[in-house]
Design a protein around this nucleic acid. Structure first.
Lengths: 146, 146
DNA sequence: ACTTGACTTCAAGTCGACTTGAGCTTTTAT
DNA sequence: ATAAAAGCTCAAGTCGACTTGAAGTCAAGT
C-alpha cells in the first residue's frame, strides 16, 4: 500500500504516518522510487497505537511496548495504567455529577452549596494538570488538502 | 495576603498566580510597593479554577464563566461538559477493562483475541487525541515537599 | 515535451499552560 | 549602610504530538 491508502484506511493524515515512522512506531517496507510502501498489517499497528493513545500512553511508551519484537506487551505496565484509569474515572465521575448539580443548583453562591463544596474538595485532592484536547475531536483526514 | 501566602495556601507557584492574573482569572487588589496584595477569597477562586481544569475546561473557558460578574456559571455549558464527561468515562472504562484483560490474555497474538479486538473497535471509534499528562501528577510542593 | 499532482525531505511552526531567565526594585535582616 | 531575599516585568523557552511550508523528485496523462 502507498501512504495515501494507509492514510485512508487509518483515518490518519500522511504527515502523521511519516511522523510515526520517524519515531519508530510503524515501518514501511521499502520504496517504489521515493515513495514508501507499507504492508497491510501496518493498519493493525496503527489501531494498536490509537488504542494506546486513548488509554493514556504517550507515543514513547507505546514505542517501548513495541520494541520486544511484535506487540508483546509489558503486562505490569498495562495493569498500572488500568489502575490509573480507575482513579481518573472516579474523579471524572465526581466531576460530572458536580457539574450536573451545579447546573441546577439554586444556591446563589456555589460556595454556600454543600454538594458543590464536596466537589471542590475532590478537585483539591488531585492537583495534576490535564490539558483538554478532549473537546477538539477533530477528525482531520489528510485527504482533501487544498 | 502576599503572593507567597497565596502560593502556599493554594499549592500553586507564584509564577502561575501571576500568569492567572494576567489572564484575568484572578485579581490582586492593589499593591504594597511593587508587591501584589490578594484578598483571601482568591483561594476559593483558585479552587474553582482547579475544579474547572479537572473537569476539562480550558483556562479561556473558565475565564468566560467568570466574566458575568462573579462565578455565575453558564449552565448549558456545564451540562454539555457533563455529557462529554459521560462519553469520556464510558470510553475510559472500556479501555481499563481492555487493559486488564490484555494483561492476562493467553492468546499468543492479541489480534486473535476477540475481547482485544472489541477493544480495538472502541479505540477506533474515538479518534480524538488525548495527551497524557495524567502520568506526571507532579504535586509541586506547596504543602509538603518530601 | 511538459505539466500536473502525489510524494519526498527537513526545518520550523502551532497549541495550551505554564516555567525560566535576565535584569531591575523593594523589603528585611545584619 | 549594605547585602541578601523576595517581588517585579517582559521575553523567551518547554513539552508532546503533530502540522505546515518550502523546495525538490518522480510517474503519468495530454
Amino acid at each position: 500500500m502507498d501512504i495515501t491508502e494507509v492514510a485512508k484506511a487509518s483515518g490518519l493524515p500522511a504527515s502523521t504516518l511519516r511522523f510515526y515512522e520517524e519515531k519508530g512506531l510503524i515501518q514501511s517496507n521499502g520504496r517504489s522510487g521515493l515513495r514508501r510502501l507499507f504492508s497491510a498489517n501496518v493498519i493493525e499497528r496503527l489501531a494498536l497505537i490509537a488504542l494506546g493513545r486513548n488509554a493514556g500512553f504517550s507515543l514513547d511508551e507505546i514505542a517501548e511496548m513495541f520494541t520486544p519484537d511484535g506487540p508483546d506487551i509489558n503486562r505490569a505496565l498495562l495493569l498500572t495504567k488500568a489502575d490509573e484509569l480507575d482513579k481518573t474515572i472516579e474523579e471524572l465521575t465526581a466531576m460530572r455529577d458536580g457539574l450536573r448539580h451545579a447546573a441546577v443548583c439554586k444556591a446563589p453562591n456555589h460556595f454556600e452549596c454543600p454538594k458543590f463544596l464536596r466537589l471542590l474538595r475532590i478537585a483539591g485532592k488531585n492537583r495534576f494538570r490535564q490539558p483538554n484536547r478532549l473537546k477538539e475531536n477533530k477528525l482531520k483526514r489528510g485527504v482533501k488538502k487544498t
